[in-house]
Design a protein around this nucleic acid. Structure first.
Lengths: 195, 195
DNA sequence: GTCTATATATTGATAGAC
DNA sequence: GTCTATCAATATATAGAC
C-alpha cells in the first residue's frame, strides 16, 4: 500500500489527460500505461475494465467540479460567482480550443456509447446545472426559470467551446465568454426583465 | 456504371447514418458494408480509405445544408428564416436527443483526430455561421456584430443539443429552441437593442 | 502487488480470382 | 466492377511467474 496509491493515481491522471486530449475511444489502455509509466498489465490490477477506469475519471472530475463550485462561492454575489464561472472558461480558452471541453467531449462520446458510461458522463453536467441554477435562484428567479437560465448558460458555454475547438479559435471562446458575462451584468442591472 | 452509382450511394448513406448514430471512430467499415448490404472489399473500390469516405459524407452534408438554407430563404423575413432554422432543430429533437447533432458530433470527434478530417468537419459550421450571419446583417446588424450573433446562436443550438443528448431529454432541446425563437422575436421587436 | 507474455477479437487495408 | 480470402496491426483482457 506504500506506493500503490501513487501508481493508481498516475494511471487515473494519465487517463484523464488522454481522454481529454484524444478522446475516450481512441485512447488505448496501452497509451495510458505508457503515459503513466506503468506496465500495461498493471492497469488491470487497479481497474477491471476500461469502463471502470473512465468511471473513476468521471468521479474524480465531479469531485473537482464540486470543489471549484465551493471556491466560486467565495465571491460576494451570485452575479460575481457566475462571472467567475465564465472567467474560468475564458482563462482556459487555449486548452479548450485545442482539445475541447473535458466534460462536454466525454459526454458527447459517452452519449453514443450508451449504457453506464453515458449515465456517468452526464452526471457532471447535472452537477453544473444544479449549481448554476442555484445562483439564478439567488438572483431572484423562480426554480423553473432558474433551471432554464442554467440550461441556456451551460449550453452557451458548451456550444462556444465546440465552435472554438472545431475551428481551433481560442479567441472565439474568449469573446463568447465576455459576451455572456456582459449579458449577465445587463440582466442584473435591468432587474431581470430581459434575456 | 449502371448500378455502380447505386452501390456507392448506399455506402455513403450507411456511413452517414452510422457515423451519426454511433460515431466515426466506433463505426467500422465492416459495419458500414453490412448496413449497405455490400461486401467489405467493395467499399475499397469506391473509397481508398476511411478518411475518404468521411470526407464524402461531409461534402454531402454541406450540400444538404446549403440546400436547406436555400429552402429557408423562402420565408419572407430574416426573422422568419431564423425562426424556421430553429424550428427544424425543434422538430428533430427526438433524433438529436438520441444521437446528438450529426454536424456537432463529427466536429467534436474530428477536432481531436486532427488533420484533414478536422478541417472538413468544421467546414459545415462555417457554412452555417455564414448563412446565419447573413440573416443578422439583413436585420440591420453590422458585419462584426452579425458574426457574433451568429456564433452565439449556433453555439446555443449546439450546446442545447449536447445537453439534451447527454441526458436523453428531447424536451430540453425543444424548450431551448422555443426560448431562442422568443428571444429572436424580442430582439426584432425591441429594435435590436437587447440580447 | 508487479510485470511479462500472450490469448482472442477486431480493425483498416490489400491481393488477386472472377 | 465485384467479391473472397487474408494480411498486419492493434485492441481489450487474462494467465501466471515473480
Amino acid at each position: 500500500m506504500s506506493n500503490a496509491g501513487i501508481k493508481r493515481e498516475r494511471i487515473v491522471r494519465s487517463a484523464k489527460a488522454l481522454f481529454h486530449e484524444r478522446g475516450y475511444t481512441v485512447t488505448s489502455l496501452a497509451d495510458i500505461a505508457q503515459e503513466a509509466k506503468v506496465p500495461l498489465g498493471n492497469v488491470y490490477y487497479y481497474f477491471k475494465t476500461k469502463e471502470d477506469l473512465v468511471a473513476t475519471v468521471v468521479e474524480g472530475r465531479n469531485e473537482y467540479v464540486r470543489a471549484r463550485h465551493r471556491a466560486l462561492e467565495k465571491a460576494p454575489t451570485p452575479l460575481a460567482r457566475l462571472e467567475d464561472f465564465l472567467q474560468r472558461i475564458h482563462d482556459a480558452a487555449d486548452s479548450r480550443a485545442a482539445h475541447g471541453c473535458p466534460v462536454g467531449g466525454l459526454a458527447q462520446e459517452a452519449g453514443k456509447l450508451g449504457g453506464r458510461i453515458a449515465q456517468e458522463a452526464g452526471s457532471t453536467f447535472q452537477i453544473m446545472l444544479e449549481w448554476v441554477g442555484e445562483q439564478y435562484r439567488a438572483l431572484g428567479f423562480k426554480p423553473g426559470q432558474a433551471r432554464e437560465r442554467a440550461v441556456d448558460l451551460v449550453a452557451a458555454v458548451q456550444g462556444s467551446i465546440l465552435l472554438g475547438h472545431s475551428s481551433g479559435d481560442a479567441e472565439l471562446i474568449r469573446r463568447a465568454m465576455q459576451r455572456l458575462q456582459a449579458r449577465l451584468r445587463l440582466l442584473v442591472k435591468e432587474g431581470k426583465r430581459h434575456a
